[in-house]
Design a protein around this nucleic acid. Structure first.
Length: 340
DNA sequence: CATTCGTGAAGACGAAT
DNA sequence: ATTCGATTTCACGAATG
């Protein structure tokens, strides 16, 4: 809150100063009125087209001027009120875009004179607080950026608000524990979102995140492991059943009716249970188990899908399905289900 | 012809050293 | 830090229907 205030104040004062400057500038212009070299008529400045034009004969005196005036378009209600966006140019090279004040470390005044010890002490205190405000701002900015990313990715992947919330909490904790240093904001944001889906028992295969996040898959994984270790996130291994819903929806929405989808899912759930009994799941990737179970279910239920179709819908490959589904079928045959 | 099946090479990962 | 073993993926060709 208070940091926000400081910032807006800084901005307003800069703005006012600019505005004053601008006023004196136009006054100066009026004093040294230009006349047209052709007809001696008055020259008017067309700021919109960045031209100096003679009012009488239309001669263009000077063009391609830079328009230093305020922008008169309004982008939000605040801007609409002041109809102005002037201020110091911002830079991305500084974490606060250079909008905060910087206090020199030298104990000199503006004329280079040594300042009194009392002033020196005051300056020292000011520097301390300035640094506090600045770093607080930096953290806030970091969060803002990260939350923006999280929101964007979550929208793209259709992840629920509740999971986003969790992701934000994870990210905030990471920031507080200084785990971001040396890592990209986007990387940590992605990892936090991935962790959140795991924490909320709504896991997504990690490569889905890669499609929306510019960050390499390996980095997402690395950062995720780091976060979960450092933050003691208690994340249980993914149950392949968690994937069934999504995968089957993905697979069936265009092909078959909801009833068939349901029986497919029930059967696949059954198969996974059996497979777990037989310890077929340990060491294998949960997505493999899920997709192989779906393929097996599709055979049993006689709702055939090709391995290729399932592989596409489940972020695995046909080969992996092949390698898994036969042993699943074996186990399942010896269990409740008997096929001819 | 599409689908399924099998294989070897290569990469990633975890556990062990 | 390296090594080893299991898993997954890729690219390919053969078998099947």
């Amino acid at each position: 809150m208070s940091s926000n205030n400081t910032q807006t104040q800084t901005r307003t004062t800069t703005e006012q100063r600019r505005r004053n400057n601008r006023q004196t500038a136009t006054e100066n212009n009026a004093d040294t009125a230009v006349t047209c070299p052709e007809c001696e008529g008055a020259v008017i400045a067309d700021e919109k087209q960045a031209e100096l034009v003679c009012e009488d004969c239309g001669l263009v005196i000077d063009e391609d001027q830079i328009d230093r005036g305020p922008e008169w378009r309004a982008f939000n209600s605040t801007e609409q009120r002041n109809k102005s966006r002037v201020g110091a140019p911002t830079t991305n090279t500084m974490h606060d875009k250079g909008l905060t004040t910087t206090i020199d470390w030298r104990d000199k005044d503006a004329y280079g004179r040594q300042i009194s010890s009392r002033k020196r002490q005051q300056m020292s205190r000011l520097r301390t607080w300035q640094e506090r405000v600045r770093t607080k701002n930096s953290g806030e900015r970091n969060l803002k950026h990260a939350f923006g990313e999280i929101d964007r990715m979550a929208s793209a992947l259709g992840i629920s608000d509740q999971v986003r919330e969790t992701a934000s909490v994870v990210y905030r904790r990471a920031l507080e524990e200084d785990l971001i240093r040396g890592r990209s904001i986007e990387g940590v944001a992605t990892a936090a979102l991935y962790a959140a889906t795991r924490l909320s028992n709504a896991p997504r295969p990690i490569d889905e995140f890669h499609t929306v996040s510019r960050v390499e898959e390996s980095e997402i994984n690395r950062t995720y492991l780091y976060l979960s270790r450092e933050l003691d996130l208690e994340i249980s291994p993914v149950d392949p059943k968690e994937y069934l819903n999504r995968f089957i929806n993905e697979l069936t929405s265009t092909y078959i009716n909801p009833d068939e989808a349901h029986s497919l899912e029930r059967r696949a759930t059954d198969i996974i249970e059996e497979a777990k009994e037989a310890n077929l799941h340990s060491g294998r990737s949960p997505t493999s188990i899920a997709s192989a179970a779906i393929y097996t279910a599709s055979i049993i239920e006689k709702i055939r899908f090709t391995q290729k179709e399932i592989a596409n819908a489940t972020e695995t490959t046909e080969v992996t399905i092949r390698n898994r589904y036969q042993e699943m079928l074996e186990v399942y045959k010896d269990g409740k289900y008997h096929i001819e």
